[in-house]
Nucleic acid binder design. Sequence first.
DNA 1: CAAGAGATCATCT
DNA 2: GATGATCTCTTGA
Length: 195
Amino acid sequence: MFDNSIIMRLNQQFYNQPTVKVAKALLGKFLVHKVNGKILVGKIIETEAYVGPKDLASHASRGKTKRTEIMFGEAGYWYVYLIYGMYYCLNIVTEHKNYPAAVLIRKVEPVSGLKEKIKTDGPGKLCRAFIIDKNLNGMSSFEKKSKLWIEDRGEIIKPDKIKKAPRVGVDYAGEYKNKLWRFKLSDEEIELIKR
DNA sequence: CAAGAGATCATCT
DNA sequence: GATGATCTCTTGA
């Protein structure tokens, strides 16, 4: 069988761009996870950018550690970590090597492969729904062998459909807490997706 | 409705 | 020993 998903899969070059640009460009793209013989698909509708060593909201602002070293690496690798003892968060590393940055996938709209009632409208919830855990930390998203990736199905999102907001849960981040580095599709646009 | 607290543990100090 | 890029449930108006 010919596998279309390989053609549409975003390549490493896509992620090796300014993080804010990548965060916006990911809206309207499709998160795909091949797991347990199933293919789970969701359309990305909200992201957050974590940019560079000075961003106090970013784990990388406290220097390179065993946990954050993946953020200092090359673009296009998954950064998955456990938060509050019970939830995983999914990020994709951006920009060049030795510059720590990543995009957090905050919300997706279920497309296929997911059970009816399961929610995907939050970082922890979507990881639960997509069966994402620490095993995926450090894996690449752009290689043919990877089971978790993001693909472009040719849809164009107009810039005026993207809303900006401060990031969630980062009150401790000083001046960085007010940065408008959270991006989401407008409510009207999300309604259209649900049809 | 909104606000508050509890769950629960890897990571860092 | 403290804390967090979250979520769910309970409480109370």
